[in-house]
Design a protein around this nucleic acid. Structure first.
Length: 806
RNA sequence: GCCGAAAUGGUGGAAUUGGCAGACGCGUCGGACUCAAAAUCCGAAGAUGGCGACAUCGUGUGGGUUCAAGUCCCACUUUCGGCACCA
């Protein structure tokens, strides 16, 4: 078969006949299946894209043949850093390179023969999309979920530009190698923390991989503890967060994050130089290093003292980089006796170490002792177990207004400002008279100007564009300045699944009534690397939009599957710089799209992926030839017996177990085993020696239908050759004939003392005691037992019998 | 460092979730067809020992639980994903 020719033929015909059109009148039977859209960075799709899109398209086709009305849209996450970097390097405008890449990728995606609903496409860098991204910002602002505050960025002093984490290599700028420092800028945030509790609680009900739910759970990082107020010499107070309030009597110092604003106020003149030097040093260390538990703890004394509210003890106030300003209150109490970090810190700087928790009977409670135990040296709380001591101490603090129970989350608010050009402008203007004013909805979009200078020279590209920056205040009409930052591209991807089904809507981002019927997405497929960020942001958006009244559901993605990653042949992640990118094009030219996607489905575990190798791609082509020969061999045969003998019964059994297994495997994204079953069926048909041609034709028809989601063009062709109705996607997916699966005998393994000794056939109508007695009475089994005493017998129906003797 | 995964023949990968390890392929070897080769069809095969029936060993390492462990528990090793401005 000329695969290339038939693929082209069917793709054209499918398009002419619009066979994959989503039927908006049958929304009750809808299945919304979508893959994470891709970033058009490289000029072309690589094998990894196919690995994401090909198999999931097969899943979508499988659902379509099961009678669902499938919606499988596709789009592009088109804003972002790489296009801008490319522009800086080559001078090619990001819009031009991006649109060109999208064009190429669309063409390649169409060549895949997927049933994408192209009329639902979204491209996030187009004004008709980012208009509504900006609208989202405005709604969040109105709902009190967007605010500004100072936050650090990576700053390269030599390039005078903000760097992405990715552009910082070992603390240095990837372009000029100067040391990168952190610098505070006022930036926009979304208050995702308002939803921390709900984001955590709703995880339970999602059909997502357990590991992903666990990662999100840990990312949100709920921890219950207490805030305790310490008073400084100058009368000012600050709070520390602790999960071990029971150790408050053991505090020997307190620590503020180096970024904590109080540090400036309290540092004594003689300590100022030290503190400045320390803060300068810390500004060069990234957060991952700061949190490393093996890194040596460092700190500096501010010269100030604070009073422990529980016992009036005066303790030193230090700064140390292991305290993060962004978590808890940005301050912690140091209890060296019961915390490993504090223990190391206290030893280094010569602080007191006072035990306040004792282990129970027989417990090794060598300091630092971080387990729970019983309070000692704690006045009236002595002897209380840890949990009660916590309660007692916090209640006492509460009674004097010095503490309370609080719940803390590790999750931080989402910083959405980017000091870059290639993103959606943040729709805000600053007016001397009216202050911060969001752009009214009817004035959206705030268009991203094309004629900008995006060379890095110390200013955000948009800030240099006077025509963009200078505007009038929507409130008072006076002169005003625009926000020069753009939105994080994660904002664009946090709602695109809401736009797909209503992508042409000019009046609103989507029609709520329609979207409430189309969503949530039934099956979302994408990489596990998005577990914590994209997948959490999208959930936040849906919840926020629901609370604003735009949606009536709680979660965007009911069911989630992660595909693995196809690595380069060298086992490394495919990347242009490594030069290990595998392009599908030459394979498709040689073997066709069907064979290529089937190979990807067969040669790798879908959720694991692995290093690319084309060993075996030829074997898929050979397999398809084998199927073709089989079908063509029977097509013209008209003479048939109507025998239903052993040959037919046997093959019918294999056919129906295949249908059963393949259906289950397709449902579970276990494509490699589904294909293995189909190969077994093909092998079994080859071995058929009977003469019942009508029966075989029926088996072949079912096999072709089972193959249709995996090799759509090839199966369409065979379907036509067999004279069956077009298109195959509208034909029914084969159903299992349960009666064909009934067998009256099964083979089980016989174990003596847990070692396999043989295999026997046993009737399927026996069970329990009957079966045990039947087995030990069998002559083969008696011989194996050889006169020894049977002590125990364990029978696993259909699997094995283990006879314990001796 | 912290969070989350993974490790199975020469090789890609299976294993009903605690029940016959290695399905289905690739590669290899043998046979059929052929003058021959290719293609195709049929078959063998974890390792070691044995002519053989068979025996022993075997799922990254070391322990453990169990009638039974690739699967569960403990301690490690290595690799991968994420760590909030790559997307």
């Amino acid at each position: 078969m000329d695969y290339i020719a038939i693929e082209k033929k069917w793709q054209d015909k499918w398009q002419r006949d619009d066979v994959y059109k989503f039927d908006k009148t049958k929304v009750g039977k809808k299945k919304y299946v979508m893959e994470m859209f891709s970033y058009p960075s490289g000029a072309k799709l690589h094998a990894g894209h196919w690995f994401n899109f090909g198999p999931s398209d097969s899943y979508a086709r499988f659902k379509a043949m099961q009678g669902y009305n499938v919606f499988e849209p596709m789009g592009f996450d088109a804003f972002g850093l790489p296009a801008e970097n490319y522009a800086i390097k080559t001078g090619i405008h990001p819009e031009d390179s991006t649109l060109k890449n999208i064009d190429t990728m669309e063409r390649q995606l169409k060549a895949m023969g997927a049933m994408f609903n192209w009329d639902a496409e979204v491209v996030t860098c187009m004004p008709d999309y980012y208009k509504w991204t900006q609208w989202m910002f405005v709604q969040l602002y109105k709902a009190g979920l967007a605010y500004r505050k100072e936050a650090p960025v990576n700053w390269c002093p030599s390039c005078a530009t903000v760097l992405a984490n990715e552009q910082v290599v070992d603390g240095a700028c990837e372009r000029c190698n100067s040391t990168v420092v952190r610098k505070n800028l006022t930036q926009w945030f979304f208050k995702i923390t308002d939803y921390a509790e709900e984001l955590l609680n709703c995880l339970d009900d999602l059909d997502w991989p357990e590991k992903t739910k666990l990662m999100q759970k840990n990312w949100i990082g709920k921890s219950t503890g207490a805030e305790v107020e310490f008073t400084l010499d100058n009368g000012k107070t600050f709070r520390v967060f602790t999960t071990r309030a029971d150790t408050l009597y053991g505090v020997s110092y307190v620590v503020l994050a180096p970024e904590h604003p109080l540090v400036d106020e309290i540092t004594t003149p003689d300590r100022q130089a030290d503190i400045d030097a320390y803060r300068d040093m810390v500004s060069k260390v990234n957060e991952i290093e700061r949190l490393s538990s093996t890194r040596e703890k460092t700190g500096a004394f501010t010269g100030a003292y604070a009073i422990n509210p529980i016992n009036g003890k005066k303790v030193q106030v230090w700064v140390a980089d292991y305290v993060l300003y962004s978590y808890g209150t940005g301050a912690v109490m140091g209890v060296p006796s019961h915390d490993e970090r504090d223990f190391a810190f206290a030893n280094k700087y010569g602080m007191d170490i006072t035990r306040v928790v004792k282990g129970g009977e027989g417990v090794d409670d060598t300091l630092p002792f971080v387990e729970e135990g019983y309070a000692i040296n704690c006045d009236e709380f002595d002897g209380l177990p840890t949990s009660e001591a916590k309660k007692g101490i916090v209640e006492k603090l509460a009674s004097i207004g010095k503490g309370k129970f609080v719940t803390n989350y590790r999750l931080r608010d989402w910083l959405v400002s980017r000091q870059r050009y290639w993103g959606a402008p943040i729709p805000v203007v600053y007016c001397d008279k009216c202050g911060t004013v969001v752009v009214p909805e009817e004035q959206l979009p705030v268009l991203l100007p094309r004629d900008v200078d995006f060379k890095p020279d110390g200013k955000s590209p948009l800030r240099k564009h006077e025509g963009f920056m200078n505007t009038t205040c929507p409130h008072c009409g006076g002169p005003a300045t625009r926000e020069a930052d753009t939105l994080d591209t994660f904002v664009c991807s946090s709602w695109y699944f809401l736009r797909y089904p209503d992508n042409k809507n000019q009046d609103k981002p989507f029609d709520s009534e329609w979207i409430n019927q189309m969503l949530p997405v039934d099956k979302y497929i994408g990489g596990a690397e998005h577990a914590c960020m994209h997948l959490l942001y999208a959930r936040f958006f849906v919840k926020a939009l629901r609370d604003m009244g735009y949606l009536n559901f709680d979660e965007p993605f009911k069911s989630l599957v992660h595909q693995g990653i196809i690595l380069g042949p060298d086992g490394q992640k495919m990347s242009k710089s490594r030069g290990n990118v595998v392009s599908p094009d030459s394979y498709i030219d040689k073997y066709g799209a069907d064979a290529f996607r089937m190979y990807l489905m067969f040669g790798f575990s879908y959720t694991t992926g692995g290093p690319w190798s084309d060993d075996g791609i030829r074997s898929i082509a050979k397999y398809l030839d084998r199927v073709e020969r089989l079908v063509l061999g029977y097509i013209d045969k008209t003479e048939s017996s109507d025998d239903i003998g052993e040959e037919e019964k046997n093959l019918n059994y294999i056919l129906n177990t295949t249908i059963k297994k393949v259906t289950e495997d397709m449902e579970a994204f276990s494509f490699n085993t589904a294909i293995a079953r189909l190969m077994e069926l093909t092998n079994a048909i080859y071995l058929y020696k009977g003469t019942n041609v009508n029966f075989i034709k029926d088996v072949l028809d079912k096999m072709v239908r089972l193959l249709a989601p995996i090799t759509p063009h090839f199966s369409e062709e065979l379907n036509m050759l067999m004279g069956k109705p077009y298109p195959i996607i509208k034909r029914e997916y084969p159903l299992v004939d349960e009666s064909a699966l009934v067998k009256n005998e099964v083979e089980i393994a016989i174990q003596i003392n847990s070692k396999i000794k043989g295999r026997i056939m046993i009737p399927t109508d026996k069970s329990g005691k009957d079966l045990e007695e039947y087995i030990i009475a069998l002559p083969e089994v008696v011989a194996l037992i050889g006169g020894a005493t049977v002590r125990k017998i364990i029978v696993v129906p259909g699997r094995l019998a283990n006879i314990i003797v001796g």
